[in-house]
Design a protein around this nucleic acid. Sequence first.
RNA 1: GGGUAGAUUCCAGAGCGGUCAAAUGGGGCAGACUGUAAAUCUGCUGGCAAUGCCUUCGAAGGUUCGAAUCCUUCUCUACCCA
Length: 390
Amino acid sequence: MKSPAEQLQALTRGTARVLSETELLRKLERGTPLRAKLGVDPTSPDLHLGHSVVLEKLRQFQELGHQAVLIIGDFTAQIGDPTGRSKTRPPLSREEILANARTYTDQAFRILDRARTEVVFNGDWFNKMSFTEVIQLNARVTMQQMLQREDFKNRIANDQEVRLHEIQYPIVQGWDSVVVRADVELGGTDQLFNILVGRDLQKTEGMEPQVVMCLPILEGLDGVQKMSKSLHNYVGISEAPGEMFGKLMSISDELMARYSVLLLGEEIDPSLHPMESKKRLAAALVTRYHSATAAEAARENWEALFSRKDLAAVDLPVFAVGDRRDLLGVVAAAYETIFSETKSGSEVRRLILQGSVQLDGTKLTDPKSEPIWSTGCVLKLDKKRSVRIA
RNA sequence: GGGUAGAUUCCAGAGCGGUCAAAUGGGGCAGACUGUAAAUCUGCUGGCAAUGCCUUCGAAGGUUCGAAUCCUUCUCUACCCA
């Protein structure tokens, strides 16, 4: 068992903000396992590297002998959170939520220790609340406090709507902390405000307030916006090794440095060629979520395809040409069946005309042509994706 | 409840009776160059059986040879007053 001071040092590493380290140290000195809370909304079932930052930290708590409390926000998901400005997210059905929660935990346990994780649904307490209790809960917080929040403030400044239930979110999340008696709450830096509300509510309940631990937000593959499924800039933790490796190879050097620090806790070795560093980063992450063997294979395959352009040696998804044998039809079908991307005819036509499509290294630019689809040849769809003809 | 402004393609935002699938910017995609990097340059960015046709400008009606543009009603949003 590590000393409280050692634990503090380990736990605060890689965090963006801890309020406060002194409080955390005091809690650690009690010697009893801390209850570390993480709340998640079961809205999108795919966990990605962005989620992994905070989950890894939670696992670290577990490794030090503390208790992880994973709150599934089934209640909040049922209301539907219209955060993205004007777009209202359709509320999820009970079944969808439960299914999402399941896929979520299945994936989360690739990182977390199942034995040391308490999974609870916040609907268990919120669905039982009477309206009187809801009003009383609201009475604990002032409007002014809620309007402190950055995104509310911004939206008001920009004459955009803010719905009343959105203002309830921090309160609801904060109350979770009271119910589960959290000692520490983890979250991204964007969660700072919500976690602070939890502190306030705990204080009014006469509890010792939770420590706020914010982790940096991981940028997506574009390097600008935060990683999220809806922005299509994410790397899922259950993606295939090859996919994962390839996606990581497409990031910029600046982003690579950031990923390395946030995901591996290591600085980039400046003596290496940036591409080599990137390969190592990609391999390390594939190893983490798959295996060292898979990482080695992914690297080898990637090098064959993109460095040596040795098409024969590459392992590619196999696509069987169907009834339509014209270029446009085949390309569209390949996108559809192999990558589950439905592209309109116009879009595929554009790709072809612009020279994106190649067959065994030769550009094909006539959408209506019917090339010879011999078994084993490689059809390149775009910069990053190719298939082998069956 | 009263008043004012507004709702345009992924986003922001022009357009205010025909020359509008709709300027411009952002984003995205593709090509060249590269290290599937960055930067830069170029092109594309509603759909289709595609030198043409079809459907889009909050919704439904209407005026007109012709509507994103004019009229009516409705829905929604913000701001001011209560």
